[in-house]
């Protein structure tokens, strides 16, 4: 079982919180978006609390930073772009999986159509990696900057990520004669007040006619082949790290102490 955290840091110098995060949640794989902290500084902080963290010495994708606690040889990049990084995760005596990581353009810079296009390019990269490796044991994690219910995520021309395992386990659907493979999107159950955690991962209170306030931009999507290895009850949107509360008195992410996004924790049984 490996423990994974994804967090959009909102360019904040949160290395001390990251150190507490990897200690408190026994993190093996830390994936960051909007990280402006130099890698050496992050490593110093992480390794002080939970030794053996490593990172890539070179990277073209500047939108994603990855820190691993297992040997570097086990996470090999296979596809990369400005905003995406797809790696083969091949731990000893474990089944190989593909780990796709992404930070897609914000709604401030891209509208619905632009975001759909970006999701499709991401999917094309995923499909390239799956074709290259010969399997579809893929997990996609990141700040997609779109909600699970938007066409970019749920649409057949987008990521085709559906809300129930039962549907995802059908593997694919056919629309107008073309087959589209599913992702399972477990984030749906974390929406709203009746979830175990906060109503979303990101709060935006704009004075617009249509505003969701809470958004679930940070998501983890799973191909059907990996669903059995994804213990769903372990997926959590974190609201505290040690005694640091990530939500302010308003119940929204406290940008003064942390990021405007909440971190997402999950485990993989591989």
């Amino acid at each position: 079982m490996i423990n994974i955290v994804f967090w959009n840091l909102n360019r904040k110098p949160l290395q001390d919180l990251l150190a507490a995060l990897v200690r408190n949640y026994d993190v093996d794989l830390l994936i960051l978006a909007e990280n402006r902290i130099p890698a050496k500084m992050v490593l110093r902080a992480l390794n002080a609390e939970r030794p053996e963290f490593r990172t890539r010495p070179w990277s073209i994708c500047t939108k994603i930073a990855v820190f691993t606690r297992f040997h570097s040889a086990f996470l090999q990049p296979t596809e990369e772009s400005d905003r995406t990084l797809i790696c083969r995760l091949n731990l000893p005596a474990r089944v190989e999986i593909l780990l796709a990581m992404a930070h897609l353009p914000s709604k401030l810079h891209s509208d619905e159509m632009g975001q759909l296009a970006q999701c499709q390019l991401l999917l094309e990269s995923v499909k390239q990696a799956e074709s290259k490796t010969g399997h579809t044991r893929t997990i996609l994690v990141g700040d997609l900057n779109v909600n699970p219910f938007e066409a970019s995520v749920v649409g057949a021309l987008g990521l085709n990520a559906v809300m129930t395992k039962e549907i995802a386990l059908r593997n694919s659907r056919t629309v107008q004669g073309k087959e589209y493979r599913f992702f399972y999107n477990p984030m749906w159950r974390h929406f709203g007040e009746h979830s175990d955690g906060p109503p979303g991962t990101y709060y935006y209170g704009a004075a617009r006619h249509v505003n969701y306030f809470w958004n679930m931009f940070d998501q983890v999507l799973i191909r059907p082949e990996l669903i059995q290895r994804f213990p769903e009850h372990e997926l959590r949107i974190l609201t505290s790290i040690g005694n640091v509360q990530l939500l302010g008195n308003s119940g929204q992410p406290n940008r003064d102490v942390a990021s405007d996004h909440l971190p997402m924790f999950f485990r993989l049984d591989i």
Partner: peptide, 22 residues
Amino acid sequence: RVLKTLLDQAGDASRSNPFDRR
């Protein structure tokens, strides 16, 4: 920049792994 990074790695590939500890 992209070409330089990739050429460096292509040259280093036989000697090291693209992930490393700092």
